[in-house]
Design a protein around this nucleic acid. Structure first.
Lengths: 224, 224
DNA sequence: TGCCTACCGTTAATTTTATCACAGCCCTAC
DNA sequence: GTAGGGCTGTGATAAAATTAACGGTAGGCA
């Protein structure tokens, strides 16, 4: 009764499923490049270190089903995943902070087939503003809202220094952005209707370090 | 019978809890810097956009408990989290591929109080090998195994090009590394006793893009 | 001092996510 | 043809994570 789509039987896909779909697709593109036309669920699974059931379940969730028992048609599946996770007309992405990380991200995109386009970068460094950095025009942060609106930017990659990250919330919200990938180590309070993915590299590394330890258990009912 | 600690009542902490603990700590350090001595669970919670119950539960899981009702002692909690997620003597980290991403990661570490030390970088570019890049000595990838052993490197940040990522598995395994943070878009098959965290930036961005869409629901039992 | 508020720690319930198990069917081989 | 094997799709089950509920108690205040 509370969802705005309560009258239809619609369901939100699990976040992990979305991540895996993205990974499946990239693997499938690789397979396609190698001339492969069909692939079994267990093959796709082992490539990702997961189980075949997981793959089939994910595909079931998006309503994909194979018309043959010779595995999934690679090309068809690629397109189908695209209908789920892509926006039909693509989606413009802006990036705030044009340092090493931003340049790395931008370069990652080169050569990748994707409906995502990084169309504008923002920085305050006068050496970068007005130039094209890593193939993306760089604007001054002061002009963020109007430029973002001009470019119809819907998602933001935030790579500014953590110390100024909080100041970005207001302009990002005002520019009508719908999703934020936050590389900053500052948790940000956006309105609920903006999707935020916090992705702090220190946290990740500390997590890896924790699970790299020999002793990563915690005593429970045990006493001295 | 399979765990080496089966005789004690020990439990593995949830992955999410580890991530949050890392985030709590960084926030607490920030609070400490601002002269704050105590903090309530609901304050810590709202800073991270989660609930107070979640915070209290996480702290319960690691066996932390406050001796007062005036909130948690910031400094004490910081140290306690450290006893859980840090290795007592710190942990040496190596980084493979010294491009933009690696330099960004390395810079992120500067000024952060952490038991993690990036002590060696590896690349194949002769312009980088033998020099100090972002404060870290850079060795040739050919010398990886012996150098990693010398430095007692336990965790690896993998930022090489995806196309050669698979070739890194063997030397990393051979060097006795226990954890890998894989920024590559290639899923890697390490032995089970090596902890791997796959973090592909394209996947993340596609996820953000998906949840940025207006329509991210999937029909279930609904028909035409 | 003694009530009252509000915060903490913990158990229980719920929700979400992943795994198991199996029915059905296409494909292959004979 | 047709019997058998192997792959898919999915209901049932289990595991993981989050959220709710509540008793206990320190601290504030009259």
């Amino acid at each position: 009764m509370s969802t705005d789509a309560a009258h239809t039987n619609a369901k939100r896909l699990p976040e992990r499923t979305i991540e895996r779909l993205s990974e499946y697709r990239r693997m499938l593109l690789e397979c396609l490049k190698q001339g492969r036309t069909h692939i079994y669920s267990h093959e796709l699974a082992s490539m990702h270190g997961i189980t075949a059931v997981q793959v089939r379940r994910d595909l079931m969730l998006i309503g994909f089903s194979s018309d043959t028992k010779k595995g999934y048609d690679v090309e068809v599946l690629i397109d189908f995943i695209g209908t789920i996770i892509d926006s039909p007309d693509g989606l413009n992405v802006g990036i705030i902070g044009m340092g090493n990380l931003a340049q790395a991200v931008t370069h990652y995109f080169n050569g990748k087939r994707s409906k995502l386009r990084i169309t504008a970068a923002f920085d305050v460094d006068p050496h970068k503003v007005g130039k094209t950095v890593a193939g993306v025009p760089c604007y001054h942060m002061d002009t963020f809202v109007e430029t973002a609106l001009q470019h119809d930017i819907r998602a933001i990659i935030l790579t500014s220094p953590s110390s100024v990250a909080a100041e970005m919330v207001e302009p990002i919200t005002r520019a009508g952005v719908r999703g934020v990938l936050n590389f900053t180590s500052t948790p940000l309070n956006f309105p609920d209707d903006i999707y935020v993915e916090d992705y702090d590299i220190i946290t990740l590394l500390e997590k890896v370090a924790y699970f790299s330890k020999d002793n990563n258990l915690v005593p429970t009912a045990a006493d001295e």
